[in-house]
């Protein structure tokens, strides 16, 4: 049976406003929403623009809003939606570049701001770093983040304040803070000790809810806050790291 897919279309160069276009399409039983979009494009309208790459929920390209829920299109089964009309929109909180494609610029800017790279001390140890797996448990959890921006799109703080760094960037920082190999300075941490950094979070956990990889970014932000309080205190008493 055919289903109606209401897809948001917008070309800022030619259109005044975004509008919905309705496509009739009959998905196959096991189709993901990414496969549905591809089939609609391949069979009905090759001009439909959306991002995609791995189709297995690891590249982070295809986060969208489907029936009002933020999700990865490739991970969402059509059959699980159980509606006669399916509404497909781009991610909120980011500007539309065309159709379902949004501009990630503020997301990447925040990512770069936190210094998203390991800052070890000294040269490469001869036989590698010696780190027990138990010390890396949190690192493993937070590094599963695929930078799809679902959390950024769902975050109410990012909606009202575009200077807010957002959950993905902050949890990336937390991933390094929890890594025993990382020796970043107090100054590096201080960069996020701001109202648009770790103190901006409303702790409403929308990021945890929408994360397709169960990263739980809000937990990371919470961890950074605790870390910052400890580091500030240490710094106050001259016990610099």
């Amino acid at each position: 049976m055919s289903t109606q897919f209401k897809i948001l279309r917008f070309d800022p160069a030619t259109d005044d406003h975004p509008h919905f276009q309705v496509f009739e399409h009959t998905p196959k039983a096991q189709d993901t929403m990414l496969e549905v979009l591809k089939d609609i494009r391949d069979q009905q309208d090759p001009s439909l623009a959306f991002r995609y790459s791995c189709r297995e929920a690891v590249c982070g390209s295809c986060a969208l809003t489907i029936n009002g829920q933020i999700c990865l299109a490739c991970k969402t089964l059509f059959a699980a939606l159980k509606t006669d009309v399916v509404v497909i929109e781009p991610l909120p909180n980011l500007e539309i570049q065309k159709d379902l494609i949004v501009d990630f610029a503020p997301f990447w800017e925040a990512y770069r701001f936190i210094q998203p790279y390991l800052q070890p001390e000294g040269d490469i140890p001869e036989k590698g770093h010696h780190v027990e797996e138990s010390e890396l448990a949190e690192v493993f959890q937070y590094t599963t983040c695929i930078l799809c921006a679902s959390c950024y799109a769902a975050c109410p703080v990012a909606t009202r304040d575009e200077r807010y760094l957002g959950p993905a960037a902050l949890v990336k920082l937390h991933r390094f803070v929890k890594d025993p190999r990382d020796k970043r300075s107090y100054e590096a941490l201080k960069r996020v000790d701001t109202p648009t950094g770790i103190w901006g979070c409303d702790t409403v956990f929308r990021c945890n809810d929408v994360c397709p990889k169960e990263v739980r970014p809000a937990d990371g932000i919470e961890g950074l806050r605790r870390k910052m309080v400890v580091e500030r205190t240490k710094h106050l008493f001259g016990r610099k790291k």
């Binding site: 790279y117 001869e126 590698g128 770093h129 493993f140």
Partner: peptide, 17 residues
């Protein structure tokens, strides 16, 4: 060892290697 130093979170054996 270089990748490890760059931050790759490799799984580890007891002893940390």
């Amino acid at each position: 060892y270089e990748l490890d130093h760059w931050g790759v979170p490799f799984s580890r054996f007891p002893g940390g290697v």
